[in-house]
């Protein structure tokens, strides 16, 4: 099935600005549905959607599940443990089995970069990437865009992504989406956590968070994982907090009011202070609300109809 977005949503890197705007615009009315007493519309009634999560995730999976159910789709959750190699059944076989059960869409999160494309190339069902390795997390990027757009136009806004950009699929998706919609983008973190060649994407690099705060209109604060310390990228979480933590004191030095985003879950006291996360400039909870709306919009746009029939139906009645 193909429509304005093609068969799958694998990332934001290869979407056009118009396609991204279509998704954001479509998400707006879906926000209203979540405010109703009956939070359901019948548009995906009878569609089968599998949430195939190879990595544990509560919030993303639940957000997708709400989105699917609010569109009246039937959902199945599959929590596949570990890598496909460990499991024995290959990703290819998992894919083919799902397809043999005639599912309509797969929402997949997997630990290997490129896994979503790998699956999408091998099954006819629509594949939505809910995070593949370090590559992309497009719905997170989209909901971050929507949240910024709720407060200010994206074009011309200065957004700095702070933290472990090297290992972050959220950062990559954000970078693509923001650049395409005309934002100025920067990253900030210890150099050991910034990827080689990032400037070549059109992104500024700040080596000190104070500089980033002085420059930005929006901060997107990434979660710092304990594994990074254990793998030797940074000496300790304490040191990270001291030099890169987004604290109330640092924000007080900012020349303007910054919007604060965080993809969650937060390590309070590591990358971000509680007082910032819960403070007046934080839109972290709005991100969560927007997440359901964005995912509904994505499901809606991708579940689209048969294009041949659409052509034939163009002359048909619609009133």
């Amino acid at each position: 099935m193909s429509g304005a977005l093609g068969k799958d949503l694998l990332g934001l890197e290869h979407l056009s600005a118009d396609q991204i705007r279509l998704i954001l615009d479509t998400a707006e009315p879906f926000k209203e549905i979540s405010e109703r007493a009956i939070k359901k519309v019948p548009v995906l009634r009878g569609k089968t959607i599998v949430n195939l999560f190879f990595e544990a995730s509560t919030r993303t999976r639940i957000s997708f599940e709400f989105a699917e159910k609010r569109l009246s789709a039937d959902t199945v959750n599959v929590a596949a443990s570990g890598s496909s190699v460990v499991k024995g059944e290959t990703l290819v076989d998992t894919a083919r089995n799902l397809e043999a059960m005639r599912i309509d869409m797969v929402v997949m999160r997997h630990g290997s970069s490129g896994a979503a494309k790998f699956l999408a190339d091998r099954i006819e069902s629509t594949v939505i990437n809910a995070g593949d390795g370090k590559h992309e997390h497009p719905t997170q990027g989209l909901l971050d865009l929507l949240t910024i757009r709720d407060h200010r136009p994206i074009a011309g806004t200065k957004v700095c992504i702070v933290g472990d950009v090297l290992h972050s699929r959220v950062a990559r998706s954000n970078i693509w989406g923001l650049l395409k919609l005309g934002a100025a983008v920067a990253v900030c973190g210890p150099q050991s956590l910034l990827p080689l060649g990032i400037e070549a994407l059109g992104v500024h690099v700040f080596r000190r968070v104070e500089e980033a705060i002085a420059w930005a209109d929006v901060l997107n604060v990434l979660r710092l994982q304990l594994e990074r310390m254990q793998a030797g990228y940074i000496p300790s979480l304490r040191e990270y907090y001291r030099h890169f933590g987004v604290t109330v004191e640092r924000l007080e030095q900012a020349p303007r009011d910054l919007l604060i985003l965080h993809p969650g879950p937060m390590n309070r006291g590591v990358e971000i202070d509680s007082r910032v996360a819960d403070g007046p400039h934080s839109v972290i909870l709005n991100q969560v609300t927007n997440g359901v709306a964005v995912r509904m919009a994505v499901l809606y746009l991708l579940a689209g109809g048969n294009p041949e029939l659409a052509e034939a139906a163009k002359g048909a009645s619609d009133r």
Partner: peptide, 23 residues
């Protein structure tokens, strides 16, 4: 009312832009 999400021809015609708010 925007009835786009309640149409019975989604299968045939596919997603359409919502034309206005429902309230």
């Amino acid at each position: 009312l925007d009835i786009t999400l309640y149409r019975d021809d989604f299968e045939v015609v596919g997603p359409r832009p919502l034309v206005g708010p429902t309230h």
